[in-house]
Design a protein around this nucleic acid. Structure first.
Length: 671
DNA sequence: GCAAGGTC
């Protein structure tokens, strides 16, 4: 309870995004002096202390919300799912459901506060949550002064700076989010019901009406699914072509060097044979050029959310979902800066050397951090992505392994710390040696690498740069004891997508926010549209594939990223004040309503695609693989033939000599 | 039973 003296102080209410953040903000601003009590909302405590604020000692209450306070929903008349009423979802009036306990907590605190400071996240959603907090607080206290504080690191300095530079809420941003919410709810619900009701009606065996399984549609989940199906289609349509590349092998000073042909891969067997003839008639090979030059492997750029996802998925074997959760934990514990950043350039005023100073006492990378400071300080690369809100992800304090009960949290923290050091340090430097050999009319080149200075690679185990030895050759030297191989290769189809690839695609195409990429992947897994194969690659299911194909056949781009990107651009225009929420909503809802009608008219496409894919799937299961690659590997002539310049009587053909593998219209009777 | 965005 406040003392008599405290009762006279002005009061300010600070509202954070969640309880953990409220607790941390109170601890930092009060230097651990804050006391807490329960309010009407069990998850949102109230922390009290006094501090100097707006020029005088002020009694502060810090409390929180848990995401949005209000959420749009449909009235009870539309709760029942019916084919006949689904279209009504496009223009039915919306109700707003509210978290009353959280609201009551805010109202209680606002009632006796003079000032409200909103400390939610500095992004679009944070601004919208802030507006909802403002509405609720003003219900209890219409005269309360409302401010917005913007901070991007949970540190005392960052918070104090934010409280000294208060802003007002940006209503355009608030509107843009309201527009997104209403749009996503209407089209998501309408298409989800259309799909679900159709499948339950026509495929009751697979989708029984009493099964709670829903076949959902959403403006983010569908383009995400679309990427997976598109890649599989590219693999399926891929035509494997053979190509030939000659290779010259030579052993010098005990080092075997492989010289690759400078020409383009030969897809044409006749042309490849012409080369072979040239090479055969050449008596000797001459070293045309030996050239050694300095080369570098560039240090990485500063870390943003998408790159953290990609690195952690690939290097730490995590799923996109796990990376998001762990990074958020580290952020809330004040160990790393906000991971929801799109920025990969450090702000000019940012004191990188003081971040480095935090890391110097670490036993693994401390000496490296000190070396960066001693060598003139941090020199990050100049990059261009800047969301204008958060800096790149970087450590905020030094943590040791024993502080982490969870191994994976340590590994992500370590990755952030090592990446920060890497991007502040220097490129790796080396010498590349390039040797070109001329044989007849053909040139062959080999390169070797000697690493002089490993630079950032010293503390960055997520990349390597291997030395490659090469024999010592002199310009003009003649060599005779070489061997030629004709390497036959097949073009590789693109690989299946991994979660890391999918995050990249979503990021590039503006699907979801950096905070939700992993959720959409999880959604399409939960809906059984995609699954992971044994190698952590994403594969579509019969259902997922069918949905994408069905819309494609209707001529509707529901699973392509373009439509969503258009809508996203409109939201940016609302943020910039160039368009209103009403204009964008009416235009886009009308467009989706037209597409909804097309889907209704051609709804049999869902069934046709599902039937087709189910049948194809069964055929695939029943017919064993016809071609057994293993049995072909024993054929020594299959992949290459070899001849030596010293053995011109060699009679092996340069290509596989079995007619079944050759185009019949080519003259391959080369003897 | 539906979205995407928050978060417990």
């Amino acid at each position: 309870m406040p003392t008599q003296d405290e009762k006279k102080l002005p009061r300010a209410l600070f509202v954070a995004k969640n309880n953990v953040m409220a607790k941390r903000i109170s601890a930092l601003l009060s230097k651990d002096k804050a006391v807490w009590r329960d309010g009407p909302s069990p998850f949102n405590k109230i922390y009290s202390f006094s501090m100097h604020f707006q020029g005088r000692e002020t009694l502060i209450s810090v409390t929180s919300v848990s995401g949005h306070l209000m959420c749009p929903t449909f009235g009870y008349k539309l709760k029942e799912w019916h084919e006949s009423t689904t279209e009504k979802l496009f223009n039915a009036p919306l109700l707003y459901w509210r978290k009353e306990k959280v609201a009551q907590n805010l109202k209680d605190e606002a009632a006796n506060s003079n000032v409200l400071v909103i400390l939610t996240e500095c992004d679009r959603e944070g601004e919208n949550i802030g507006a909802q907090i403002k509405i609720v607080c003003q219900e209890a206290n219409p005269n309360i002064h409302v401010f917005r504080a913007k901070f991007s690191a949970v540190t005392t300095e960052s918070l104090e700076r934010a409280l000294e530079n208060l802003h007002s809420l940006d209503e355009n941003i608030v509107d843009a989010v309201n527009c997104r919410m209403e749009f996503d709810l209407r089209i998501g619900s309408a298409f989800s019901r259309l799909q679900t009701l159709y499948y339950r009606r026509y495929f009751p065996a697979q989708f029984p009406p009493d099964d709670p399984k829903v076949i959902s549609y959403g403006s983010c989940q569908f383009p995400t699914l679309g990427f997976v199906v598109e890649r599989e289609k590219a693999i399926q349509q891929f035509i494997a072509r053979s190509f030939w590349m000659p290779q010259l092998d030579h052993v010098k000073d005990g080092v075997k060097t492989e010289f690759t042909w400078n020409g383009k891969p030969q897809f044409n067997a006749v042309k490849a044979r012409r080369f072979y003839t040239n090479a055969r008639t050449a008596a000797r090979a001459i070293v045309e050029m030996v050239y050694t030059y300095p080369t570098t492997k560039p240090r990485p750029s500063a870390l943003n959310k998408a790159d953290l996802q990609k690195l952690a998925i690939k290097q730490l074997g995590m799923t996109a979902h796990e990376v998001t959760a762990v990074a958020e934990q580290l952020y809330l514990r004040g160990l790393i800066s906000n991971p929801k950043t799109n920025t990969n350039i450090f702000h000019k005023g940012m004191e990188l050397n003081s971040v480095l100073a935090l890391l110097v006492s670490d036993t693994s990378w401390g000496a490296f951090a000190q070396k960066i400071v001693d060598d003139g300080g941090a020199m990050p690369r100049k990059e261009s992505q800047n969301d204008g809100v958060h800096p790149p992800i970087h450590p905020l304090r030094l943590a040791t392994r024993d502080e982490f009960s969870c191994e994976v949290e340590w590994r992500v923290y370590e990755l952030v710390a090592r990446h920060f050091l890497a991007c502040c340090s220097k490129d790796a430097k080396g010498q590349e040696t390039r040797v070109t050999i001329r044989l007849g009319e053909e040139n062959f080149t080999a390169t070797g690498l000697h690493v002089d200075d490993r630079g950032y690679l010293e503390i960055y185990p997520y990349e390597n740069w291997d030395e490659k030895s090469i024999g010592k050759y002199d310009h003009g030297e003649t060599i005779t004891d070489y061997q030629i191989q004709m390497i036959e290769s097949k073009m590789e189809p693109p690989p299946l997508l991994t979660e890391a690839d999918l995050v990249t695609l979503m990021d590039e195409n503006g699907i979801g926010t950096s905070a939700t990429h992993s959720q959409h992947i999880q959604t399409i897994k939960n809906r059984e549209y995609v699954m992971l194969d044994g190698n952590q690659n994403l594969c579509s299911t019969v259902l997922g594939r069918s949905l994408v194909e069905a819309y494609e056949n209707m001529g509707l781009p529901m699973a392509s990223p373009g439509l969503h990107a258009d809508f996203e651009r409109q939201l940016v225009k609302i943020c910039e004040g160039k368009r209103t929420k009403e204009q964008v909503l009416s235009e886009y809802l009308a467009m989706y309503r037209r597409m909804f009608r097309v889907a209704e008219e051609q709804i049999h496409e869902f069934g046709a695609a599902f039937y087709r894919n189910t049948t194809l799937d069964q055929i695939k299961m029943e017919i064993p693989e016809i071609i057994d690659d293993k049995s072909l590997e024993n054929d020594e002539n299959r992949n290459w033939i070899q001849f030596s310049s010293l053995d011109s009587n060699d009679t092996k053909p340069p290509f596989p000599n079995s007619s079944s593998q050759q185009d019949t219209d080519l003259d391959l009777n080369w003897q």
